[in-house]
């Protein structure tokens, strides 16, 4: 089926986009359309107005800032994948973005589109959760910042007020002596993940872990941070048993299942992926290969 009739708007600047979004009834932002357009064709979404952000040049950029990276919401996943800056400053994002859909969909799909759509199986929200990304939005009441942890409200529902648009995302640069890994499990390459795991670790001079972040995707409506597992790692020596403890907590973490992939299977996968991701992250942080 084709999408129901809708009006298409393609503003050249952010102010016009915000104004359109704030004034038009039943309007949605088009930010690549790799999920929204199929949903419209399947009649699962029926906006009367689509406001395409694709012509707003300001929203398409990848910049180095003193803190790390600033990425425009309309930067395509393919641009992130090919960016040296991303690879250098945020290898976790580089690793994850290559797993998003197919090259064809990455050519169109955007960072902001993925973060605002919040598919539970999507990769980029998991990265944003693991890295404590800061989201910048613009709206009729002006601009504001939202920590990613406060961004998902519910299934496919971001914390955006009517008329608000995600403009860019700040991600802190990976610290020295740190490593990260992103792993996912799916039935076929390029499918949404059944479960995904992102892990970052920083090793101190004494070989102890000074920072750890673990995020899971596919287990709930939004990415889940494993605070208890992270706390358990900090101060611990990088070791197989440390990964096992974290994996154990991951496998105990509350999880939603569905007809295809029940909760207990997802929990088992969570444990396996967390253990493997931590081991890889540690190795990338310069830790011993055998752990």
């Amino acid at each position: 089926m084709k999408a129901p009739p809708f009006h298409y708007h393609a503003p050249d600047d952010l102010a016009s986009a915000v104004a359109l979004l704030a004034t038009l009834e039943n309007a949605r932002v088009l930010a690549g359309g790799q999920s929204l357009m199929p949903m419209m064709n399947l009649r699962l979404a029926g906006p009367d107005h689509l406001i395409d952000l694709g012509r707003i040049a300001d929203l398409r950029r990848i910049e180095e800032t003193p803190q790390g990276l600033r990425i425009g919401a309309m930067t395509t996943q393919r641009a992130l994948e090919k960016s040296d800056l991303v690879r250098r400053l945020c290898p976790l994002l580089a690793e994850a973005v290559a797993l998003v859909g197919h090259q064809q969909t990455r050519n169109r799909g955007t960072l902001g589109g993925s973060l605002c759509h919040l598919d539970p199986g999507a990769e980029l929200p998991v990265v944003a959760a693991a890295l404590d990304a800061v989201l910048h939005v613009a709206g009729p009441a002006g601009a504001r910042r939202i920590a990613f942890r406060d961004f998902p409200l519910d299934y496919l529902t971001p914390s955006l007020a009517p008329g608000e648009v995600l403009t860019h995302v700040d991600i802190a640069r990976a610290p020295a002596n740190s490593g990260a890994a992103f792993l996912e499990f799916n039935r076929r390459p390029a499918d949404f993940a059944i479960v995904s795991a992102a892990a970052t670790l920083t090793l101190g001079v004494d070989g102890r872990i000074t920072q750890a972040a673990i995020a899971l995707g596919g287990v709930s409506h939004a990415p889940v941070r494993l605070a208890q597992a992270e706390a358990g790692l900090i101060g611990a020596r990088a070791s197989v048993s440390a990964w096992e403890s974290a994996a154990h907590l991951a496998a105990q973490s509350p999880c939603d299942g569905d007809e295809l992939y029940p909760a207990d299977y997802r929990q088992e996968l969570s444990g396996v992926l967390v253990r493997r991701a931590l081991a890889i992250a540690c190795q990338r942080a310069g830790g011993a290969a055998h752990v």
Partner: peptide, 25 residues
């Protein structure tokens, strides 16, 4: 991969978004 899933006679994965056939990968 392939399996038509039913819930009381209702096909629950009746599109190629959910019903996966193998691709080149």
């Amino acid at each position: 991969f392939e399996n038509m899933l039913f819930d009381e006679g209702q096909l629950t994965n009746g599109s190629l978004a959910d019903y996966k056939i193998p691709g080149l990968n």
